[in-house]
Design a protein around this nucleic acid. Structure first.
Lengths: 194, 194
DNA sequence: CCTATATCGATACGCAACGTTGCTCACCCG
DNA sequence: CGGGTGAGCAACGTTGCGTATCGATATAGG
């Protein structure tokens, strides 16, 4: 869909993504418009529209840029400890103001744009979910997880409640909350009689 | 904050709320603007702004209007069956196109407007969550739920995964999905040795 | 029953952001 | 050296927001 990428200005691309991140963490969702990105990056609006479908796509790529490669969970052999690690990290991320602003923008865009939703799911979320899933599979092979547990849904059991609490702002994000959630999930998957 | 409610036109109020619901189910989020509501309702924009803070507040009241009063869960004595009922109902609601459009609009508005988020939480969500919580408390009193289970988080365990799947469109909403989720939650809360 | 006044529908306004278009310049490739 | 293409820039029309204003109307309160 985009024109010939060969002649594309890497300079402009980086400036746009950098400006996007800055504006997002500085002024949150309100401060982020295509025009403000273009102005901050010293770039014509058309240069953005030429390469991206809209605000959401830019944000997605800005995030994907500085994404940690570590998609796989550590496997210490102790499933409970490993799970607690992911949950704590996730909770901490949602509690962080800057990261939360980014997620908020992306979530709004996802709700409005189906196509973007697919990309975010595949490029951003899937790797994370798969990481947890892989760890759960290993645990199941080791007999630490019920054989009949639907692992995809167990993964949602880990992340879903955090999203829920974040979205509806029902209660604050504390470390003890994270640990309690990890414990609940553990109880749900641990084989009977252990 | 609003002016004198005594002279308020009930006719206009109802027309506005009705128009909001129609537009939402007809054309989804895209079709819903203050101006389209005013036009459909045969009402001046000012009449909307006089009584509501914005689009989100109107949608909230339009929903609250035809809200089922039944906030309490049935208590058949069988916790698993009762839980399965709520989960099935919730899943069905999110699977429905019309209801989903309403929720989508409200969710976007919630992400942008903190104050509205509070109202939605208190008036729309809290009763539902409390309903499940009350049922869980009864079950705990009957010894069907672990004494140390954090009930608020158990409630999030029920609804969180559904929101997660809806938001990220990871997998379809089926009845077997709902039942599996209910089963997972049951496993997480059932006392050891049962 | 009468009058003051608040709300009504309607319309116009300024603003902000969208997404598009046209211009000119610089660079790459043949 | 000339055609093509992406670059920055500016301007445009459109849409929706939220505010202001205008007679007309309905109602509260005497």
């Amino acid at each position: 869909m985009p024109p010939q990428p060969a002649r594309r200005s890497e300079r402009s691309r980086r400036a746009i993504l950098a400006a996007t991140q800055e504006l997002l963490t500085e002024s949150g969702y309100a401060g982020l418009t295509i025009e403000s990105i273009a102005a901050r990056a010293g770039v014509g609006k058309q240069t953005i529209y030429r390469w991206w479908r809209g605000k959401g796509a830019v944000v997605l790529e800005a995030i994907a840029e500085h994404l940690p490669e570590a998609t796989a969970l550590p496997d210490t052999g102790d499933l409970r400890a490993d799970l607690r690690g992911v949950v704590r990290a996730t909770v901490a991320e949602f509690a962080d103001t800057g990261a939360s602003a980014v997620t908020r923008t992306l979530t709004v865009e996802i709700l409005v744009d189906d196509e973007l939703a697919g990309e975010v799911r595949d490029r951003l979320l899937r790797p994370r979910l798969e990481g947890v899933r892989a760890r759960l599979e290993a645990a199941r092979a080791a007999g630490q997880v019920r054989a009949d547990a639907p692992l995809d849904q167990v993964v949602e059991l880990v992340f879903g409640p955090v999203y829920h609490r974040w979205l509806l702002r029902t209660s604050p994000f504390t470390e003890s909350y994270a640990d309690a959630l990890a414990k609940l999930v553990m109880t749900a998957v641990t084989p009977a009689g252990r």
